[in-house]
């Protein structure tokens, strides 16, 4: 088997496993896994920009929140049904990425970090400024009637745990395979090369700016899909998701799981969720334990979970 087919099989197995878990897991963990899957998609989107293309953005909360509000506001105020609302969220994130990308990509390194941070902060303040429509930090509850999905003439309710789990899985699988294809395409290889040596790529005749901009737009579109899915699947949109915290979280998930690995973001998100969930059952001061876990993990697995697996056992892992 070539490394490529092996990788494809691993990814397929993961998706099948996730499918099976819906029937095997106890209710609570099944519900949580649907959330983790949606947030993993957010992390996967971030990973494309940060892990592969080397763009350390501190503003991806803005893209997630654009998806969240694009879907949430149209569903809430205009009564859009699930598909158009999802489309609105996707479009909002993508358009925002084009504008933010053209401006922010004039910079790189630390300046890029700060510019994206400031853009995201502006977006966050805007969600507060327009409290009349967004209800600010308190947020909006999407009515259950707005969360009915029609597919092939059958109507599904997104409030049903199984429907929700399957939709989250479909989104995750689509994004996972799309990114798998993308990072192994010439575009993906160009991004990695730009990350490693931007000057050389420029001299080789690559349009560095166009490549990075495309990567950022795809990354933002994925994050916006996650945001839109979060709003529609879980019925809530609030300013908190636009705050700086949600720009740092995907960075943390990706670094924990392994930057520039296709599966890392899923592992990182899952690890972080259970680290909080489990330790908080044993102690009030659970953040100390979580903090220690992060430090130990990075001391002994500096490349993250999937990065360590790739380095030690499965060198062909994408």
């Amino acid at each position: 088997m070539t490394p490529g087919t092996k990788a494809l099989w691993v990814h397929l197995c993961l998706v099948v496993l996730l499918f099976a878990l819906n029937f095997l897991l106890p209710e609570y963990h099944r519900g949580i896994l649907s959330r983790v899957m949606v947030l993993s998609v957010f992390a996967m989107g971030y990973n494309l920009a940060f892990g592969y293309a080397g763009m350390l953005s501190l503003g991806h909360a803005m893209f997630f929140a654009a998806g969240l509000y694009g879907a949430g506001l149209t569903a809430y105020h205009l009564g859009w049904s699930v598909w158009p609302a999802f489309g609105a969220g996707f479009a909002a994130g993508t358009i925002l990425a084009v504008i933010a990308g053209i401006l922010a990509l004039r910079t790189k390194g630390v300046a890029f970090m700060i510019v994206t941070l400031m853009f995201a902060q502006t977006f966050y303040l805007a969600t507060l400024y327009f409290t009349t429509y967004t209800r600010g930090e308190e947020g909006l509850v999407l009515p259950q009637s707005a969360r009915a999905l029609s597919l092939f003439g059958i109507s599904f309710s997104l409030t049903d745990p199984t429907v929700r789990y399957m939709l989250a899985l479909v989104l995750l699988a689509l994004v996972l395979f799309a990114l798998l294809l993308l990072v192994r395409s010439s575009f993906g290889r160009a991004l990695v090369a730009i990350r490693e040596n931007e000057e050389r790529m420029r001299m080789l005749g690559y349009d560095v700016f166009a490549n990075k901009l495309s990567a950022l737009i795809v990354s933002a579109a994925v994050c916006a899909s996650a945001g839109a899915a979060y709003a529609l699947l879980f019925g809530y949109a609030g300013s908190g998701f636009a705050s700086i915290q949600y720009s740092i979280l995907p960075l943390l998930w990706v670094l924990l799981g392994g930057a520039a690995t296709t599966l890392g973001p899923i592992f990182g998100t899952l690890f972080m969720f259970y680290a909080v969930d489990i330790t908080s059952s044993y102690t009030d001061a659970y953040m100390v334990v979580v903090g220690l876990a992060l430090i130990l993990l990075i001391l002994y697995f500096p490349k993250g979970i999937a990065g360590a697996i790739r380095e030690r056992w499965l060198p062909w892992l994408p």
């Binding site: 209800r135 930090e137 308190e138 947020g139 909006l140 509850v141 999407l142 259950q144 409030t159 745990p161 879980f234 019925g235 809530y236 609030g238 300013s239 908190g240």
Partner: peptide, 14 residues
């Protein structure tokens, strides 16, 4: 806190 109440309301209903 209001935002926790509103954020929790959908799942409570479900």
């Amino acid at each position: 806190f209001s935002h926790v109440v509103v954020g929790s309301a959908p799942i409570v209903g479900e």
